[in-house]
Design a protein around this nucleic acid. Sequence first.
DNA 1: TAGATTATACGAACGCTTTCGTTAATCGCT
DNA 2: AGCGATTAACGAAAGCGTTCGTATAATCTA
Lengths: 139, 139
Amino acid sequence: MPPKRKPTRGEPVSQPPVPTEAELAILRVLWQLGAATVRQVNEQMSRSASVGMTTTLKFMQIMTDKGLLVRDDSIRPQVYRPAVRQEQTQQKLLGDFLKRTYGGSTRTLVLQALDGADLDAAELARVERLLDKIDPESK
Amino acid sequence: MPPKRKPTRGEPVSQPPVPTEAELAILRVLWQLGAATVRQVNEQMSRSASVGMTTTLKFMQIMTDKGLLVRDDSIRPQVYRPAVRQEQTQQKLLGDFLKRTYGGSTRTLVLQALDGADLDAAELARVERLLDKIDPESK
DNA sequence: TAGATTATACGAACGCTTTCGTTAATCGCT
DNA sequence: AGCGATTAACGAAAGCGTTCGTATAATCTA
């Protein structure tokens, strides 16, 4: 069995892990901007909550190690871009959340997400019929 | 200003916090059973992954402190029941998740949740029209 | 009631995420 | 080339969630 070794920085990883919350916040900025320097990302994020530059940098380094970001070293300051697709990442997160919180019942999740919307009875019934098709067993 | 103090065990807390993952797993069992001893909860959970009794107990104590559970001390073994409603808790969790992962766009979340279902074009269009009503701005 | 068994409480430790202070490298300018 | 300012790397530590060993307390049973 070959010895395990940590992938070196920037090396693509077979399956990038799901991002943590702070990582996801950075990804959201990068998905929007496409590519950005640490400074630009930090400025975007500081609109909501102030985060130190070095904190942002640290995360972006970690994320590069994990394969969540790729870095262009050929220019200074370095430019980062997302290495994972937004939809795919969201889908993965959604799958985890669905299992944890709703025991896997898409039906319940969608119904609750739609809750609060002023749907009339007919509309709601239509949605439910749709959901029956997806989630036949889970009630 | 009165000095802050930690609520004593079992004292109701104004606003119980959202449960962590492990706590949610326990809540799921209790929502199903209505009320149970530590042993019963632990047995239920050990069906999927084995967890030590003391671990389960520890969580249930923490959760009681947090106001997520209430405990009946008048009988032995003590009986616990949920102090929070399942739907409310899920809604809170869903709200957090929606913001974190989808920037608050219910539309995107529902569409992705429905993804993979073999909906024909007409059905999908109907759902989208519905979502427009809920999430008018977000695309 | 003594001893065994079960239930409860407590504290410590581990791993992971998050944060930031400090040091090293690089860039822009004179 | 040298100097100040910006950028990058590194290490350490704090916080939280999780897990469990161990100790105390309560209950059961012979």
